[in-house]
Amino acid sequence: MSVDPHANVELPAALAAKEVEITTFPEELKAECDAIRGRYETPRAALMPILWAFQRRFGYVSQEMERVIAAELEIPVIWVRETVTFYTMYNQRPVGSHHVQVCGNLSCSLCGAKETLAMISEELGIGVGETTADGRFTLSVVQCLAACEEAPVMQVNDRYYGRLDRARVREIFGGMG
């Protein structure tokens, strides 16, 4: 789970700054959205790839964006809400520039995931579900990433990193902007 939807905590300032206000369908996504719709048989079927397009562009999908997307696809806004909240990868609020997602499932646990998570938490200075004050890192625990052969594993944004130890984690984070 990327960000706990039930966490009603106030957004840290660094993340609040990443919030964007969207009231109409963004021009820059129109062409991509039309292309996506061309690949699917129904407007609703185009929803997930369009949500991905918004998340790539804005880092998350706000409720305003949900409304804009529903209007564009001419589908009920509740359908968008259901889909956004069902899938864990759609961020409903902004996250850090580097979303660190540590696998906590069995194979990783057998290879020290608990210690790895504690170590990463210590390195970043934040707990699970938190974001660094500078808005660079958000730390989450996720379910199996299908990379058990490299346990313990984490995903940072789109990339997988395996066989984690402190030296490697420092090297990875050090190389990030």
Binding site: A45, M48, L51, W52, E82, Y87, Q143
Partner: peptide, 27 residues
Amino acid sequence: VVVHRGGGAYICGEETALLESLEGKPG
């Protein structure tokens, strides 16, 4: 052929949940 990206839900490996997801719905 269209490559469709899932949204993070183990259940979508179940074949009818996968179809629901391909239709843009919760799995």
